[in-house]
Design a protein around this nucleic acid. Sequence first.
DNA 1: TTAATAAAAGATAAATTCATCTTTTATTAA
DNA 2: TTAATAAAAGATGAATTTATCTTTTATTAA
Lengths: 144, 144
Amino acid sequence: MFSKTCEYGLRAVIFIAQQAKTNEKVGINTISEAIDSPQAFTAKILQQLTKNKIIESIKGPYGGFFIDEKRLNKIALSNIVQVLDGDSIYTGCGLGLHQCNDKKPCPLHFKFIEIRENLKKMLENTTLLELSSDKALADYYLKN
Amino acid sequence: MFSKTCEYGLRAVIFIAQQAKTNEKVGINTISEAIDSPQAFTAKILQQLTKNKIIESIKGPYGGFFIDEKRLNKIALSNIVQVLDGDSIYTGCGLGLHQCNDKKPCPLHFKFIEIRENLKKMLENTTLLELSSDKALADYYLKN
DNA sequence: TTAATAAAAGATAAATTCATCTTTTATTAA
DNA sequence: TTAATAAAAGATGAATTTATCTTTTATTAA
Ligand code: FES
Ligand code: FES
């Protein structure tokens, strides 16, 4: 479904969001530990997300990655997927035709766009605020 | 969503199924032309599908790939995806956790399994018979 | 100012996916 | 039987994704 890059990115951002509640910055070491991902690779991904203003970072001692708590409700999972995997998941043909459109649909088109739309809506409607609630923190896991 | 292998495989099998209506065998050349896919690569994919009894093949002059018309309603897209991409799309965690299960769910689990299940059902309920109907042949495209 | 810390940036490497090319095997018709 | 045809099998190569390592830059506290 998503690339490894996107999977790690989503998990990392959710973890950072959960720390935002306590206004804490977290280092790459802590993050990759918490989500069980390759550290250097995860660092590269967070670099991309920083450039794209999804998260923020500060260098040096006491530095790390963080998200302004006030923005938690503005950032949806769709934004992260967009940055890391582009929009092929939202607009691409399920059978790999160069263009997905109603005029020249592939045999799966009308069934496929429904699922694609549901996925899109789900990602758009799921914000970091929701995922960093106390209940979310208690009930869900970022590694296993 | 699907790998290139799976995309080409699905398109190829649908094309072969459409020819089954007229009891015709089709060569790899014709197939890759019809679905706009790399020929040698598609041949490898069809080899796998033949081994897995999704389609049949005969070597030599007047040979080619074909599907017994009577089996068109037995073969669902899920069978093809299973052979080419395995079942990670049906059972894997959306955020890439090693195991997807209700006991230790990722933050996206309950939203994700809904979409995953819809995709699964859609693929299970879509048979080659449906996709090789006259209407399907008239209305849909396998390349663009 | 200096030493320590941590992310950014850049180079490189491993693994996987995507793709092609060559040789072999099976089948057919002449 | 022979030549032609077409898929199977195997080897190899290119591209992309995944991952690591090294150097640089920014920040902090002593
Ligand atoms: S054309 Fe294939 S999904 Fe739209
Ligand atoms: S645990 Fe992530 S989707 Fe089920």
